[in-house]
Structure formats: C-alpha cells, structure tokens
C-alpha cells in the first residue's frame, strides 16, 4: 500500500530517504508493529507533513530519522548518511511533542545548551540565543526559568533551541499543539519564513489538517494498525516561501483541505473503534 513519491527526488539532494522501513516493538502484550514498509523521500528544502490518527506511527517515524530508535528492517538515510552519522554530525534539529526544557536553566540557557555541548564560545552562544529569542518573539524573557512561561511560550523556546545550530533538516512533532489558534497561525507563518531563510527541509507531525495544508509541499497521510503511508498528497499552493495569511481564505486552500480530509477518512473506512 506504499505510495511512492511523485517528484523527481533523485535529481535533487535528498534530505531523508526511507526505503521499506518497518519498526516493531516487543511489548508485554505481544509484538506491536508501529510502522510497516514505509518508503518516503524528503528533498532538501522540502516541507513534508505527517498526518494520521493517533497511534499510526508518526512519532515513531520521526524518532527513527532522529536515530532515537533503529528500524527493525528497511533502509534509512539522512543526507546520504546513516541516521547515526547524521545525528553525530548534528544534521538536524528536533522539537518534541513536549517542550522538554531543562527546568534549572534559564530560557537563554536552554537555547544555548546544544551550542554549549558542541563547544561554541560563550559570547557567540549569547548572541545566537538573543537572536533566536527575537525570532520566536520572546526577546524579553531570556532570564526567566521555564516554569515561569506558558505552555505556548515554552514550545516556542523549544523551537528556537531546535534552530540553534542552523540545521538543514528540522524534525518537529506537533510543535504547535499547545498553542492557541492565533499564536498557532502566527507561528506557522513564522516557521515558513524561517524555513525560507534557512533552506531547511522539515518533517512535521501534526493532527491539524489546515496546518498541514498551509505549511507543506506534500502531506503524507498515514493509517494505523499497522502504521503505514496511505497516500502522499502534493499541495498545489505554490512555493511555501511565498505563502502568506491570505492563503487561508483561498479556494485552492479549501480544496487541499478537503483532499487531505477525504484521504484521511478513506484510509480508515471502518472508523476508530478498532482498538484491540
């Protein structure tokens, strides 16, 4: 049931290549197949969203790319390297579903953490943290501690931290899940601006159809039990770098939203009541 991609990925640089990746977990209740036979290419600079019902393996796919899990079978390469090599080379930045800030570090200290670990001099770290805090609109909170921030603000700090080392690949797991609708739309526009600036490829997990449509070059629709790719939908909405808020009211936008919705529902005709 794997849909191979339609764009010519071999011609451009490939950020992520998954070939027949399968991941199973050995649990007390038996073997859980989180992902089965997933094949997907993400081109450099491309924005790809993963969408699908809870438990269909979106986070697992992201964790495989990040070398936090290893595939049970299949091949995975990031910029032509193994996932481990790419991790050691710090080729990607990651923002988890939870912000995951260290509570004993200030906001600036949290953003500086990866830079500190990789030996960036102090003055440079400070400057970068200031710059990133401006970028996510939290310039005045540098000296605060995470528990003094709202959930949405913490999530923005986590995004700033993911961007700290100017990665050419961004992995994001529902980063805007905790944000209110206004901030969310603002952050989406900001994210597209940042991506246009940094030329980074993005693999973005979301539960929101409009979010996936607005942000993506392609939307990967996944289905559960076992997790696999049901369909890959190219968003015909023009370059992501040129998208602005008025796109949200564009008829083409609604067309794409409908397409994704139909694909999601078509992929699971018997509904959600299938849990074992």
């Amino acid at each position: 049931m794997t849909t191979t991609m339609t764009t010519d990925a071999t011609a451009t640089r490939v950020a992520v290549r998954a070939a027949s990746v399968t991941k199973t977990f050995d649990t007390r209740g038996g073997i859980v197949t989180a992902l089965q036979d997933v094949s997907l290419d993400v081109a450099a600079g491309e924005f790809v969203s993963l969408i699908g019902p809870s438990g269909c393996g979106k986070s697992t796919l992201l964790r495989l790319i990040a070398d936090l899990e290893t595939p049970t079978s299949g091949e995975l390469s990031i910029f032509g390297k193994t996932a481990e090599r790419a991790r050691l080379d710090q080729d990607y930045g990651i923002a988890f579903q939870q912000a995951g800030l260290l509570p004993w570090r200030t906001i600036a200290g949290n953003i500086e953490l990866p830079l500190e670990l990789h030996g960036v001099p102090k003055a440079e770290r400070r400057a970068r943290a200031t710059e990133l805090l401006e970028l996510v609109g939290l310039g005045d909170l540098a000296g605060r501690f995470p528990d003094q921030l709202s959930g949405g603000q913490q999530q923005r700090v986590a995004i700033a931290r993911a961007l700290a080392e100017r990665p050419s690949l961004l992995l994001m797991d529902e980063p805007f899940g905790a944000l209110d609708e206004m901030t969310r739309e603002y952050m989406q526009t900001e994210l597209l601006r940042i991506c246009a600036e940094t030329q980074a490829a993005v693999v973005f997990v979301t539960h929101s159809i409009p979010e996936a449509v607005f942000l993506s070059d392609r939307v990967v629709v996944m289905s559960p039990r076992p997790g696999r790719i049901a369909e890959v939908l190219p968003m015909r909405l023009g370059a992501t770098s040129g998208r602005a808020d008025d796109l949200r009211e564009d008829p083409r936008f609604f067309e794409m939203v409908t397409a994704v919705r139909e694909s999601l529902h078509g992929g699971a005709p018997s509904g959600r009541g299938e849990d074992r």
Partner: peptide, 20 residues
C-alpha cells in the same frame, strides 16, 4: 525527553552527567 535530547545532541556520558 531530556535523555532523548542529550542523545540527539550526541552528548558524551560525562556531559550528560554534568548537565542533566
């Protein structure tokens, strides 16, 4: 999530001990 983060940053055991 913090352990994952240190792994992602390829932090050494010593760095992880000291900072996490």
């Amino acid at each position: 999530v913090h352990r994952d983060l240190m792994h992602v940053y390829a932090a050494s055991r010593w760095q992880t001990t000291l900072r996490l």
